[in-house]
Amino acid sequence: MYRSVGFWKRLVAGILDSIIVMLPISLLGMLLFGWEFDSPYSNWITLPYSLFLPVLWKGYIVGKRIMGIRIIKVNGNNVGVGTMFMRLIVGGLVYALTLGIGLIVSAFMVGIREDNRSIHDFIAGTYVTEAKPGEV
């Protein structure tokens, strides 16, 4: 894995994404539609963002772009919709079915493994890198 990214950069990218993208969507939903703050509707709106933006933006989403990291396939190619589906939906199902234990294991994997890959990275055949498009 070329210039793989560890736990802290990935965590900060996720927090930035939550603040910059997810929080405003939730707040708009509350104001416009009366959603509760943790409404499942906001998840259905942010799902296309997480699924399609990395495909269109060479592995970046807003938080990752700010941190200078992106998602790519293990072979160095850019991610596609199928890859992102596996990473988000199938990975999310694994975390849900294990009652969050898989998520904790994944956090340790990203922090401890030399390639910094988590469970959802293995499912989708991806990893997170600091390499710019065309560099890998």
Rank of each mutant, 00 (worst) to 15 (best):
H120M: 12
V110H: 12
G68L: 09
R65K: 15
D121M: 04
I89D: 05
L88Q: 03
E114F: 14
L56P: 11
R10V: 01
I89F: 12
M22I: 04
T126D: 10
L23C: 01
V94A: 03
I25K: 00
M22S: 05
R87Y: 04
G6K: 09
V110K: 04
L16G: 11
A13M: 12
Y41R: 01
G34I: 00
V128Y: 02
Y41S: 01
I69F: 05
L93R: 06
N75K: 10
R10A: 11
S18D: 07
N75L: 10
E114W: 08
H120D: 14
W8G: 05
G63D: 13
D121P: 07
N77T: 15
F33N: 00
I15P: 10
P24M: 03
G29C: 00
A107P: 06
I45C: 02
W8N: 07
M22D: 05
L51W: 15
M84W: 02
S118Y: 06
R87P: 04
F122Y: 15
W57A: 11
A96V: 06
E130W: 05
G63E: 12
V110G: 08
I71F: 07
D38T: 03
G59C: 15
L31Y: 03
T98H: 02
R117L: 13
R87V: 03
W8Y: 13
S39V: 02
L16A: 08
Y95I: 07
A107S: 13
V21G: 06
W57Q: 02
D121L: 06
S26N: 03
M22T: 06
W35H: 04
G80Q: 04
E36N: 03
I25W: 00
T126C: 09
V55C: 14
K9F: 08
I19S: 11
R117E: 10
E135T: 10
I71L: 03
E130F: 11
V74H: 07
T129E: 03
P48R: 03
M30Y: 00
G59K: 09
L99I: 14
V21C: 07
K9Y: 05
T83G: 05
L16V: 07
L88I: 14
I45A: 00
T98E: 08
I19L: 12
G111A: 13
V128I: 07
M109G: 12
L28M: 06
M67K: 11
V79A: 02
A124C: 05
P48A: 15
R70H: 07
P133I: 02
P48C: 08
P24C: 08
P54K: 09
H120R: 13
G6C: 09
M84N: 15
S39I: 06
F52C: 09
P54T: 12
G63P: 01
R65D: 07
V128W: 01
G59S: 14
G111I: 10
V90F: 04
S18G: 11
V90Q: 06
L32T: 06
E36C: 00
G82W: 08
